[in-house]
Design a protein around this nucleic acid. Structure first.
Lengths: 345, 345
DNA sequence: GATAGGGACTTTACCGGTTAAGAAAGCGCT
DNA sequence: AGCGCTTTCTTAACCGGTAAAGTCCCTATC
């Protein structure tokens, strides 16, 4: 019978067993000079025999940096599950954190004010050494909170939204333009966009970019619908776009994520419309999901995993004092698949 | 110009400003008796004015419990993004953590030995107060590690896999039986199952349950394929099952998750087979995705969010010393939708 | 009027590390 | 022999809290 919450072995036990002082053990474990090889070995052996690992809690109390990165996500749980984006993003972040032997502190919050409060208490409570901020909106409440705290953060979003914070962002404006120009080049003159949550900053930017592109190309019709990113909302939006008379309805639809595009595909099928003959669909983000449908979904692809990794790298830069500013990552590129084609006459 | 990493305000500053000792501040913030209302107020006011929050790091060093729960997930990142299961599970866990003002420490690991090591260092480093263990397999290396550490854990998996650890589990055996009986009742005699990763304990259980149900019902044909849970693998498996001669191929397929069922649906379409007329498909888990396809996917549904919540509740039970043992949660139930029907003669 | 009891705080000793300053030993050099 | 310089360790003071024990004062009791 082992004691369930038995006394844990501490640096003192290791020091005693190795016949040195606590200080010496600390020096050894932080690879600092001032110890002979022999002593170092003895200390490590003692630690191994006792199964000791330094308490990160105590270590960070004593002034060392905290090896934990915060990430609060503010979207209804129901939607999160479906969005392949986040898990892929997180896995990219993790891949870099692991190299720095840091961990990710994750929290789902209901609104941005809660998130702002959370950031403050995480930071003041010395729970995190820095944080990643996602889903920026206009006049984001996190900007005025994070800045004066001195909390190292990386904001995922266009610099116009993130104020003075260090930011990592994709050029959605250019990407939306490319998407629209591609569809127009195929011959589409009536194009719709099923956008994300209107409150989100990048939705605003994409909406403006879509308008601009439509105007520049002199499209005959250009619709935009805001949704909450959910598949249901995508289905609803698609249904309402496609119920118009054939001569008036869009012949191509751009979606703001993959899920809604999948939903759109099944709405088209349900309405007896053929993709891409009757209507072309273009997804966004390009997760695996786009290759699992029939027809496969054309998409604006970007490397979400790499995006997350870049964000994490940038955060470590901020924490160590250098590398602030604005960091663009590659613009999403068009990956044509089976769901886009010239409109049938 | 604010000092970026300026000196943080500590309990001492608050004490000084309120004109009391550190001890008094500690008493006030932990709602312990021994202070007058007036003093309590003064302390809280001082804290508010200084924007102080107690350092959880220091607090947990001083012996208080750690309000962080660990979760390591051991699946390739590529697959994680797609699996709606995890995010939904995590959001369920979070919903309970929030009530206890705890956070989730998340880490993606490459293998279970890495995870076992991580648990040890998290626990010894006082990073976590307990942990959730998922994806159990037979002779799981985490069982012998977690037990002697005295680390409070909840194992998500059947008790036969989790040894002496407290477990929360769904009765997959019964659910698989129900799925097979349902399809048989519709008239299917040749049924296939596209299973998950063979190494996973619950896959083993489901495989055995499928065999048993098939035998009990005297099915004419019963196939099982192991995959890695990815959509591509699901598509491959479906393709190979459906390429047999019409008289020999399965008329119904059960999948171990939603993604593979979606992939199966598109493979059927690509091969010119109608669902459910030519082949019935039954998904597992029942995320939103099942309602976004055409036809909609029948599925074995369970409340993944609630599952996560129950796991978290159980973990808090273990941490506080009571509530160990085995905790079954409701068995997945069949939700018939558009992808299952009697086989056409 | 001495004393016990209790409320309201303060003191002080940790928790498990880090780190600056100090001390002992060994070495080369004049 | 005496001096300074390293190298190798030890000591002790923190970090920011918690909690047990101690102090002080005020009131009730016989």
């Amino acid at each position: 019978m082992t004691a369930l919450h038995g006394p844990r072995v501490t640096i003192k036990d290791v020091a005693a067993r190795a016949g040195v002082s606590k200080g010496a053990v600390s020096l050894a474990f932080n690879h600092k000079p001032g110890l002979s090889e022999a002593t170092r070995d003895r200390i490590f052996r003692a630690a191994r025999e006792l199964g000791w690992a330094p308490s990160l809690t105590a270590r960070s109390l004593a002034g060392a940096r905290v090896d934990v990165v915060g990430l609060a996500i503010c979207r209804p749980a129901r939607m999160l599950g479906l969005e392949p984006f986040y898990m892929e993003f997180v896995s990219g972040v993790e891949s870099v954190l692991t190299e720095h032997s840091s961990s990710l502190l994750l929290r789902l919050v209901k609104n941005l004010d809660e998130e702002a409060g959370l950031l403050e208490s995480w930071w003041k409570g010395r729970q995190i050494g820095g944080s990643i901020l996602v889903d920026f909106r206009e006049d984001d409440p996190r900007v005025p909170v994070a800045e004066p705290l001195g909390l190292p953060v990386v904001a995922v979003g266009h610099p116009s939204l993130t104020g003075s914070l260090t930011s990592v962002w994709t050029d959605d404006t250019t990407a939306v333009g490319e998407a629209v120009r591609y569809l127009a080049a195929l011959g589409h003159r009536r194009i719709a966009r099923v956008g994300g949550a209107a409150a989100l900053g990048h939705t605003v930017l994409r909406t403006a970019a879509f308008d601009e592109a439509a105007k520049a190309l002199g499209l005959a019709g250009a619709w935009q619908v805001a949704t909450d990113f959910s598949g249901e909302a995508g289905a609803r939006a698609t249904r309402s776009l496609l119920t118009a008379a054939p001569a008036d309805r869009p012949t191509a639809i751009v979606y703001d994520n993959d899920i809604m595009a999948v939903a759109g595909l099944s709405v088209a099928a349900e309405m007896g419309l053929k993709v891409p003959e009757d209507v072309s669909l273009l997804a966004w983000d390009d997760s695996q999901l786009c290759r699992l449908t029939h027809p496969t979904l054309s998409a604006m692809s970007h490397d979400v995993h790499g995006f997350g990794a870049e964000v994490a790298r940038t955060l470590f830069g901020v924490i160590s004092g250098d590398g602030t500013g604005s960091h663009p990552v590659p613009t999403p590129v068009l990956t044509p698949r089976g769901s886009t084609a010239p409109p049938s006459r």
